[in-house]
Computed example of a mutant assay.
Amino acid sequence: MPGPVPTAAPPAYFERLAPGRYRATEHTGGAWSVTEQHISPLNGLLVHAVDRFVAERATGGRLVTARTTFDILGVVPIDEVEVHVEVVRPGRTIELLEAVAVSGGRAVLRARAWRLARHDTGVVAGGHPDPLPPPDGLASVDLSAVWPGGYIASLDVRPLRAPEPGRATVWLDTPVALVAGEPVGELARFVGLVDTANGIAVRQSPMEWMFPNVDLTIHLHRQPAGRWVGLDTTVVFGPDGAGLTTTVLHDLTGPVGRAGQLLTVRPLT
Rank of each mutant, 00 (worst) to 15 (best):
M1K: 14
P2H: 13
A12P: 11
A12V: 09
L17I: 13
P19Q: 09
A24W: 02
E36K: 15
E36P: 15
Q37A: 05
Q37Y: 02
S40A: 12
G44L: 06
G44A: 10
L45H: 00
L46T: 04
G60M: 02
L63M: 04
L63Y: 00
A66K: 12
F70D: 04
L73C: 09
V75Y: 08
V76A: 09
P77A: 12
H84Q: 12
V85P: 00
V88A: 04
T93S: 13
E98A: 01
A101F: 00
V102F: 10
A107D: 12
A111N: 07
G126M: 13
D130T: 11
L138H: 03
V141E: 11
D142N: 13
L143C: 01
W147R: 08
G149D: 09
G150P: 11
A153G: 07
D156S: 13
V157D: 04
P163S: 08
P163A: 12
E164A: 15
P175Y: 02
V176E: 08
A177P: 02
A177F: 00
A188D: 03
F190Q: 08
F190M: 14
V194E: 04
D195V: 04
T196K: 01
T196E: 08
A197I: 13
A197E: 11
G199F: 01
G199M: 09
S205I: 13
N213V: 04
L216W: 00
T217Y: 00
T217L: 03
L220R: 02
R227H: 14
W228F: 13
V229G: 02
L231P: 06
D232Y: 03
T233K: 08
F237G: 09
G238Y: 06
G241N: 05
G241V: 10
A242H: 06
L244M: 14
L244H: 08
T247G: 09
D251N: 07
D251P: 07
G254N: 05
P255N: 04
V256G: 09
V265R: 08
R266E: 08
P267R: 09
